[in-house]
């Protein structure tokens, strides 16, 4: 079969893996966007910039404080998440009740400021971030060599995504969250601090983006433009999946990563645009997105 298609199985599985890795990042980022959208009803255009900050946070933790990858995996999302909470408290909250387009413009402006500042101080070229020593090397699966770190990224992202799904859909805290999305005033009347929940939700969504940034740091280099490069694809993923469903954004993220990877094998010219083409088709057939509810 492989001979017929004119590609080696090795090549196919390599690209599938690359696709899965990108899919992990799409899933983490679109999941964060969905969580934020559900609670705050805004599209966070600064998501890419905060993903980039996660990667830089890992870089600084290592090079300034000597804290390795494992610390960064915990600390970077916390630090960047706290920064997100600050943004929500100081800036985004002022726009509550206005047309959501204003918060979109505000977060877009923030993305420009953050990216511009990092570009000023660190230039456009990438900074290397070493792979953690425990995860270097590769293992032979029989049909392909699997670099251990890449396997780790896919498994760990999947675990984080499904934990988030469990947290929101199956726990009491998640129930409050979903209730506050539906009717914030009523939930407040029950004595639940909804404004604080909004801040924490925003911080959590940002934390997921920062986590994706830390995971990406050893694979791609740490670059100021890394967020801007990925964000338009993530938006297309969000449009395809529809922002109504948590599980939907996870599945769509991974699936589109894989499709992108396969396109690199079979028709490389289209690998940059395949996600956008799929978006166009989904809009024609199911305008609300594959998992979306019509508003």
């Amino acid at each position: 079969m492989f001979a017929l298609l004119g590609i080696s199985p090795q090549q196919l599985f390599q690209q599938l893996l690359v696709g899965l890795i990108n899919g992990s990042f799409y899933a983490l980022l679109s999941l964060g966007l969905s969580v934020i959208f559900g609670m705050l009803n805004i599209v966070n255009f600064a998501h890419g910039a905060l993903y980039m900050m996660g990667a830089f946070a890992a870089y600084f933790l290592l090079n300034l404080l000597g804290l390795n990858y494992w610390f960064a995996l915990v600390l970077a999302p916390l630090i960047v998440g706290a920064f997100g909470a600050l943004l929500e408290r100081v800036l985004l909250r002022r726009l509550a009740g206005l047309d959501p387009l204003y918060s979109l413009l505000l977060t877009f402006g923030l993305a420009l400021v953050i990216q511009g500042l990092f570009q000023n101080f660190f230039g456009s070229s990438g900074l290397p971030y070493a792979m953690p020593s425990q995860l270097t090397g590769a293992t032979n699966l029989g049909f392909m060599f699997l670099p251990i770190y890449r396997g780790w990224v896919v498994v760990f992202s999947a675990v984080v995504c499904f934990s988030t799904w469990f947290l929101i859909e199956k726990t009491r805290l998640g129930a409050y969250l979903r209730a506050a999305t539906e009717n914030p005033t009523l939930v407040r009347a029950f004595g639940i601090n909804v404004p604080r929940m909004i801040t924490l939700t925003y911080a959590f969504g940002i934390g997921l983006a920062a986590l994706a940034g830390v995971l990406a740091a050893p694979i791609y280099q740490v670059r100021p433009a890394m967020g801007a490069d990925i964000i338009s694809v993530v938006f297309a993923v969000v449009v395809i999946g529809g922002m109504g469903s948590i599980l939907g954004s996870i599945v769509t993220g991974f699936a589109l990563g894989i499709i992108e990877g396969l396109t690199k094998v079979f028709y490389p010219e289209a690998s940059n645009t395949v996600v956008f083409v799929i978006m166009a088709f989904v809009l024609l057939i199911r305008p609300a997105g594959l998992f979306g509810r019509t508003a």
Binding site: F37, I42, V43, P100, L101, L104, S232, V233, F235, A236, V238, V239, E269, N272, T273, V275, F276, V277, M279, A280, L283, L284, P287, A295
Partner: peptide, 27 residues
Amino acid sequence: LAIRRQGIYFAMITLALSQMIYFFCLE
């Protein structure tokens, strides 16, 4: 395509479509 969705989705769709045109112009 874009007017099939409103508000923030409209913004995201136009952004994604323009990225597609960018890659077309690049190649």
